[in-house]
């Protein structure tokens, strides 16, 4: 993978912004947990924040935002199996 110096400098700026966003979201997720929300709401909110954080890491730190198609096919397949894995308990309980 070839990158120009200019591209890398832009990347670095993005990394710093993503770090700030991740740190802020970490503080928010802890703060929200002190609000005494009903359990369903608390779970939903915590998982939404975690998903946003995970997406930021995957998109920018793991460079998924500019990744080749084959990687997305692997991840799509993984995600499908992951959902099956998560829903097995829900279906059996």
């Amino acid at each position: 993978m070839e990158h120009t110096q200019e591209e890398i400098r832009k990347h670095v700026k993005i990394y710093i912004s993503v770090f700030a966003a991740l740190a802020a979201l970490t503080v928010i997720t802890v703060a929200v947990s002190y609000l005494d929300l009903p359990l369903a709401g608390a779970i939903a909110l915590a998982l939404i924040i975690a998903t946003v954080k995970a997406s930021l890491v995957a998109a920018f730190f793991m460079h998924l935002i500019s990744e080749k198609q084959i990687i997305f096919w692997i991840l799509l397949l993984t995600f499908a199996f992951f959902l099956v894995l998560l829903f097995i308990p829900a279906m059996t309980s």
């Binding site: 970490t26 997720t29 802890v30 947990s33 359990l39 608390a42 779970i43 915590a46 998982l47 924040i49 975690a50 954080k53 995970a54 890491v57 995957a58």
Partner: peptide, 13 residues
């Protein structure tokens, strides 16, 4: 990424 999910699931919920 794994820790990002472990943290709220185990510590906050």
């Amino acid at each position: 990424l794994v820790w990002i999910f472990l943290f709220p699931v185990l510590y906050l919920l």
